[in-house]
Design a binder for these strands. Structure first.
Length: 449
RNA sequence: GUGCCUAUAGCUCAAUUGGCAGAGCGCUUGUCUGUGGAACAAGAGGUUGCGGGAUCGUGCCCCGCUAGGCACCCCA
């Protein structure tokens, strides 16, 4: 290796892409681990798919969002695209492997996706989604389960406040029909309604009028959409108002089943709400839609999704209903950091072993035996550096405890154990050293951080 | 894809009207070859994000690009 005489290559990463240093990776892995545990406790199976797909697999599913898709021609002249979500690949997998999968198929998928969006806080071009979906069940019970899983994960992460807002595409459509919105403007309707929080009722009314809705109709629609209260009571009221509207009764019945059973899934009543102003943009949603939001920090939603009964059929040739939820890892991390949840060590190593030129062999053997007992051990590789130096480096890496093994310790059969934060040091017999280390680590973890 | 703000040492920032590029922290070395964080001393570290222009002269003015933040759009 040499760059002598040449110009140095510029070290850079692309806009919206990032390196994750160990301290960040430890937090990311911890969060992913919590989500994975809950997914598996619900019997969801792991799945992974290629990052790159044939372009035609990805197109025609997400509507306008496909503008954000990374696509290009590969060296073999194939049109290819990076996946922009995990839902479309799932639909492809279910269609391709119908004979190998038992329906309903419950799967989770934790992986990066790519969208060429403009970066902002909690918004990147490469980001991770944690998805749990059920393919092959049309039952509202399936929707309820994925909503419950979402609530469970957010609860387990310790998010101090979040709300899962629940709505239904068909119900919103019915409301639109009742208000006289032309069918052709349905997606414009969803988008406008969805912006209620941001632009307010007057803003929404203005946008609706631009799509051919009269002032009266717009206000009637807004009145319906902004109703708040106990979900089952609200739905009961709507049932009467929308008696004559096609599809409304089915949508209301589905939502009623979901709200009826959510408490039985263990979801606290203050964690979800019926909110008909929620529409969501992705084109493939066909029924229930939902979204988890927090008020601080301002990162929009931390997760969402819904029912997409037509998507698998686009690949399979026969309809296979499906529903699911998606959590945004980056958004969740913003919340965790903002609220100081989850303080973690900066190193995966629990123990640093400090050594001397004459004790390298003994120290390596000690490290091995500590590892066999289940501890994570960072063996110093610098016997020529002073003990102080080795301790300092271990502390800077964030390792909580050091074991010092010199000639004296080998001789006496007792190692020196030093707490790198407080500085206290004790002598511990080599027999039972692992046990003592584990106790001290546990004691440290119990301390407020 | 659009608009506004920003970019100076590893980090946080300073630099008067356009006139010698600096500080603190961190880093390296030494005091100090078995006990770090302190103190003292010395040292390294910069094409002021990149490229162009105007000017006798630019970190500072103008243009383009790149990246970050914010607001749209959209979304996780």
């Amino acid at each position: 290796m040499s760059n002598g005489g040449g110009s140095k290559r510029q070290a850079r990463v692309l806009k919206g892409f990032r390196d994750f240093l160990p301290e960040q990776m430890i937090l990311r892995q911890r969060i992913v681990g919590i989500a994975r545990d809950i997914f598996e406790r619900h019997g969801f199976e792991p799945l992974d798919t290629p990052a790159l797909e044939a372009l035609e697999v990805l197109t025609g599913k997400a509507g306008e969002n496909e503008q954000l898709m990374y696509h290009f021609e590969d060296a073999g002249g194939r049109e290819v695209g990076l996946r922009y979500d995990l839902t479309v690949p799932l639909a492809r997998v279910v269609a391709m492997h119908q004979n190998e999968l038992v329906l309903p198929f419950k799967r989770y998928h934790i992986a990066p996706v790519w969208r060429a969006d403009n970066p902002q806080r909690g918004r990147f071009r490469e980001f991770w989604q944690c998805d749990a979906d059920i393919a092959g069940s049309a039952s509202p019970l399936a929707d309820a389960e994925v909503i419950a899983i979402m609530a469970e994960v957010l609860e387990a992460l310790g998010l101090p406040e979040f709300t899962i807002r629940i709505s239904h595409r068909r119900l919103l459509e019915s409301l639109g029909r009742a208000a006289g919105v032309p069918e052709a403007h349905a997606s414009a309707l969803y988008r406008s309604i969805d912006k209620l929080d941001k632009i307010g009722p007057e803003g929404v009314a203005r946008e609706l009028q631009a799509t051919g809705v009269t002032d009266d109709q717009a206000h009637e629609l807004l009145a319906l959409v902004t109703m708040r209260g106990e979900p089952l009571a609200l739905l009961g009221g709507l049932r009467g108002e929308l008696e004559d509207i096609d599809g409304a009764a089915t949508a209301i019945a589905e939502l009623e089943q979901i709200f009826d059973v959510l408490p039985d899934f263990g979801v606290a009543a203050d964690r979800y709400a019926l909110d008909l102003s929620l529409a969501r943009g992705l084109a493939y949603y066909t029924g229930t839609v939902f979204e988890a939001t927090v008020t601080r920090p301002n990162v929009g939603s931390v997760g969402g999704a819904g029912r997409y009964d037509g998507l698998v059929g686009a690949f399979a040739g026969r309809d296979i209903p499906a529903t699911g939820m998606s959590l945004g890892l980056e958004r969740i991390i913003e919340v965790v950091r903002e609220h100081g949840l989850m303080p973690l060590p900066a190193s995966v190593a629990q123990i640093a072993v400090v050594l001397f030129p004459e004790t390298t062999g003994a120290a390596a053997r000690l490290a091995s035996s500590l590892r066999e007992s289940g501890l994570s051990v960072d063996l110093s590789l610098q016997p020529h550096r002073s003990v102080g130096e080795q301790l300092k480096l271990a502390d800077r890496k964030g390792i909580p405890l050091a074991v010092i093994l010199g000639a004296n310790e080998v001789e006496s059969g007792a190692a020196a154990v030093k707490d790198l934060r407080g500085g206290e040091q004790i002598s511990v017999p080599l027999d039972g050293l692992a046990e003592t280390l584990r106790e001290r680590l546990a004691a440290r973890d119990a301390l407020p951080v």
